[in-house]
């Protein structure tokens, strides 16, 4: 059991929770890795990326958006409540070294994934150009945190309420066009955003790493639910990834697989909203 020691709403339907986790395992978490959590007997196993870790205290900070039934129920938990299972770190860490100048691009909840990478890359001596975006200003997360680890920092919103009006991809193109020589781009966010980032950087010949977000069950390579096509080969994102060379990823396949359970998710959430916990 893992106690929620702090909880904060960051934006509509986006929450941050700090959860107890043994210091010995907290110490092992590297940027790019994730944990699987199961809130109780009924919950799905869902992958979440620690946005921050506290080894002394023995805790993980997890940011999530309410999408399906499990994340909605997670959103209803309060400080002091218990989460049944947390296992990790899982997945292969992102390579952190001095690359030079790196653009770090976070879309929506993807910013939570990208923040620890941006921080580590900054500490490794890179020049970090950050671009974060969301549909609207109220949905932006980790603005201050991202700014504090960036040499240059840009915000975009689809509706123009905060920062530049438009998409992160357009901002990235502008940065490139302005003459910023990028050695690497790292991106996380909705699959469609990562796809357009990938298309853009391919045109400019800039190496790009994306963190994929397929549906997982065990998170340890046991089931193949998270299989993605990279360079024409089938990979399990939970063990081979979740970070891959963007230019090798079959994004259309990923987009399709992400929709596999959309009908079921809708049904389960509707029943939850109706207040029928049994769903029968």
């Amino acid at each position: 059991m893992h106690r929620i020691v702090a909880k904060k709403q960051l934006a509509p339907n986006i929450h941050m929770i700090e959860v107890e986790f043994p210091p010995r395992m907290v110490a092992k978490i590297r940027p790019g890795q994730f944990v699987m959590i199961r809130i109780d007997e009924y919950g799905e196993r869902i992958p979440l990326t620690p946005a921050a870790i506290d080894e002394d205290k023995g805790s993980l900070t997890l940011i999530f958006q309410e999408v399906g039934r499990t994340t909605r129920r997670l959103g209803r938990l309060r400080e002091g409540d218990l989460i049944s299972d947390v296992v990790g770190p899982l997945g292969t860490p992102t390579e952190i070294k001095r690359f030079g100048t790196i653009a770090v691009v976070g879309g929506g909840i993807g910013t939570a994934f990208i923040y620890p990478e941006a921080k580590a890359l900054k500490e490794a001596g890179n020049c970090v150009v950050s671009i974060i975006g969301a549909r609207s200003g109220e949905l932006l997360i980790l603005k201050e945190e991202m700014k504090s680890v960036s040499d240059k920092f840009f915000i975009t919103t689809d509706d123009g309420t905060v920062g530049r009006k438009g998409f992160v991809t357009q901002m990235l193109e502008e940065v490139i066009e302005m003459g910023e020589k990028l050695d690497l781009v790292i991106a996380a966010g909705p699959a469609i955003m990562m796809k357009s980032i990938s298309d853009l950087t391919r045109r400019y010949g800039i190496k790009t790493i994306v963190s994929l977000n397929p549906i997982m069950v065990d998170g340890t390579g046991m089931c193949g639910s998270c299989r993605v096509i990279v360079g024409g080969e089938t990979k399990f994102a939970c063990v081979d990834g979740p970070s891959f060379d963007a230019h090798l990823v079959d994004f259309d396949h990923l987009l399709s697989r992400l929709k596999m359970y959309s009908e079921e998710e809708k049904l389960a959430s509707q029943i939850l909203e109706m207040g029928n916990q049994d769903g029968l």
């Binding site: 799905e44 196993r45 039934r69 069950v217 359970y261 079921e264 049904l267 389960a268 029943i271 769903g279």
Partner: peptide
């Protein structure tokens, strides 16, 4: 695994879906 471990046969009470 979805069926036995996650009890998808009792979806949506158990929240892991199966198709």
């Amino acid at each position: 695994t979805r069926t036995n471990l996650m009890k998808a046969y009792m979806f949506p009470k158990y929240e892991t879906p199966i198709r």
